[in-house]
Amino acid sequence: MAKKDEKILYNRIKSELADAQISNQELAKKLDVAVETVSSWCTNSAQPSIKRLFDIARVLDINVQKLLVPTRPNRLG
């Protein structure tokens, strides 16, 4: 369980985009959404709909479950 001050990241879109070497702009264009929308997903300030998650997974050629694994930020030290 996360500590009170520890932020949990609810999606892995940013990480999966990096792995696929696809930019926010490319994903936005393929999904016909604003770049700002993709940016908000990547920073976890907004979450895509379930349908959009499947669309994102299709573009990235991954299983949608890879986008939904909650993670905690890396800690140094």
Rank of each mutant, 00 (worst) to 15 (best):
P73M: 06
N11W: 00
K30M: 14
Q21P: 02
K29L: 11
S39G: 09
T43L: 01
E26R: 15
I50S: 10
R58E: 15
C42E: 02
V59S: 09
V35R: 09
I8V: 11
D32K: 15
C42G: 03
A57D: 05
R52Y: 07
Y10T: 14
L17V: 09
N74Q: 14
R58Y: 03
L53F: 03
A20G: 04
Y10P: 09
Y10M: 07
K51P: 13
N11Y: 02
L17C: 08
P73V: 02
A57Y: 01
A20R: 10
P48A: 04
S45C: 13
L60P: 00
Q47G: 06
N24P: 02
V35S: 13
L68D: 12
E16C: 02
P70L: 03
Q47I: 02
S39L: 07
D32M: 09
A46R: 15
Q21W: 08
A18R: 13
G77F: 00
A57N: 07
A2P: 05
N11K: 02
D55H: 10
R72V: 03
L27K: 05
S23C: 07
S23F: 03
E6L: 00
M1E: 00
R52E: 13
Q25N: 14
I8G: 03
R12P: 09
D61L: 10
P48D: 04
V59C: 07
S49V: 01
R12T: 14
K51C: 08
Q65T: 15
K29F: 10
P73W: 02
N24D: 12
V64H: 04
D61C: 13
E16K: 11
S23L: 01
K7F: 08
V35N: 13
A2Q: 01
V59G: 01
P70Q: 06
T37R: 06
K7E: 06
T43M: 01
L17M: 06
P73R: 12
T37F: 05
A34C: 13
A2C: 02
A18N: 10
V69P: 07
V69D: 14
R52W: 03
T43V: 07
P70Y: 04
A18W: 08
K29H: 06
K30H: 05
A18S: 12
I62T: 01
W41Y: 15
P73A: 04
R58A: 14
I8T: 14
L68F: 11
R58T: 14
K7C: 09
P48C: 10
A18P: 07
D55S: 09
L60E: 08
R72A: 06
K30P: 07
A2E: 00
L60S: 11
D19G: 07
K14R: 12
P48H: 05
E36D: 15
L60F: 03
I50E: 11
M1R: 00
W41M: 04
Q65D: 15
L53T: 02
K14M: 06
L53P: 12
S23Q: 07
I56A: 02
A2S: 06
S15W: 04
V69S: 10
R72T: 13
P73I: 01
S15Q: 15
L68N: 13
Q47P: 03
R75T: 11
T43S: 04
E6P: 00
I22S: 08
S49T: 09
L9C: 12
P73N: 09
N74K: 13
D32C: 04
N44L: 10
N74M: 09
R72N: 06
V35A: 12
V38T: 00
D19V: 07
N11E: 00
